[in-house]
Design a protein around this nucleic acid. Structure first.
Lengths: 224, 224
DNA sequence: CCGTTAACCTAACGGCGTTAACCTACAAGA
DNA sequence: TCTTGTAGGTTAACGCCGTTAGGTTAACGG
């Protein structure tokens, strides 16, 4: 049998449920997401969902999967904007990471929730949850000589940690109504901070290359 | 009136409730924490808690506060182990951060939850949630010349992001049953990774201070 | 002794995830 | 054509949950 369209009811089946769940997640966040509310939006009773998903966790898990899919698209788009092997491409991947998180905050909060770690491993995610893409970008840059050649996995973890940490710290403060997080002297938005990190990432925290002379009074770096 | 010990019952009041909540959080995590369970452990009815805390959120908020207190103690202990102004002290603060997170995982997951950001700003936390301590450490290092002199808040955000990101990425994978996260070639535990980051943090991702003539190489970045 | 009040209690409400049991339209096989 | 299987639902209910309302008790201050 080849899955005939619809026996009867109103709901368009699994995809309709997923879509409603995605929308509700984006609108109300994880708190405002209950089986009954999802069902109401789809136009079925709450228990109908259990014909498609084992339980609420599985439903959210499916949404998480598609969230990582979209995440991967952001990353790939970032990569496409700069030539292979360039350090700019590496930075663009980071920027895409930021863009995804900021434009899909409710998603991001669930994908990287500290509470119920959903997929459990990187390997059962599309593109390894973006890991594979970033890794390839890093390897290319090393091959091209634009980046120090070390264990690529170490480099990936370094860049990923930095970017992810920046985001999660920002979001722990509700990002918008937390003016204290970015102090006056420093860039305010995560994206500004990300750019301001540039010299530190390239040259390290001890100082540029060798010459302290290069470090005139304030390197604060305007960013854009 | 000066708060006479106990009118009557068994429970030792507010502190008993807090202690039970802390314990349950450490044992079962946030999921396993309900008003009724807390009450049962204390030996009172669920509604008794509402005489001390406005609601569940307030209760957890109080626990979060004391969690940050303990967090600050870890940081201070890390600082105390190395001389002021040394780069080792900066690293020790990061290590203390890791130690706290790994030894108090359930706590950490709540303190930095992406779901319900509890304290909302750094300023109404003891020690600014550790920010103040790290900042002082950084300023000392800059004064001593062991660290590049830039906007200290920028430096703090850099170091904090890196460490925090490393932790949250690890913990998104349940840390223990996620062997994939640390690939074979790379250090396995977050602490190992933290140490492995050392050269990258000090010298940057472009390479060790080999590059002599300042920045002709690939400093294309800068802005845009 | 009396009033106040802190520190509890029980009962209940509405919402949650989930299970059990039932229904019904349709496709396919006999 | 009739039977049967099944996909796609339904309602009712269970046991949790956070929270509210309202009552009770015991110690204290005056």
């Amino acid at each position: 049998m080849v899955k005939v369209p619809n026996g009867r009811g109103t709901g368009a089946g699994e995809e309709a449920i997923l879509e409603a769940t995605r929308d509700l997640l984006a609108e109300k966040g994880l708190q405002g997401l209950s089986m009954r509310v999802v069902a109401e939006r789809v136009g079925v009773s709450a228990t109908a969902i259990y014909h498609y998903f084992e339980n609420k966790d599985a439903l959210i898990g499916a949404v998480v999967q598609s969230g990582f899919q979209r995440f991967g698209e952001y990353i790939q788009q970032g990569m496409a904007s700069h030539p292979k092997g360039s350090i700019e491409r590496v930075r663009a991947v980071g920027e895409a990471y930021l863009r995804f998180a900021l434009e899909n905050q409710s998603y991001f909060r669930v994908l990287f929730s500290l509470q119920h770690p959903h997929p459990h491993t990187l390997d059962d995610l599309p593109e390894g949850g973006g890991y594979g893409l970033l890794r390839q970008t890093v390897v290319d840059a090393m091959d091209a000589g634009t980046m120090r050649t070390i264990d690529p996995d170490l480099m990936v973890m370094f860049l990923w940690s930095l970017t992810h940490g920046l985001l999660t710290i920002s979001m722990s403060c509700r990002i918008d109504d937390c003016p204290e997080f970015g102090k006056e002297s420093v860039a305010q938005t995560p994206l500004d901070l990300f750019h301001a990190f540039g010299p530190l990432v390239r040259e390290g925290i001890t100082g540029p290359a060798a010459a302290p002379a290069a470090a005139e009074d304030k390197i604060v770096e305007g960013g854009r």
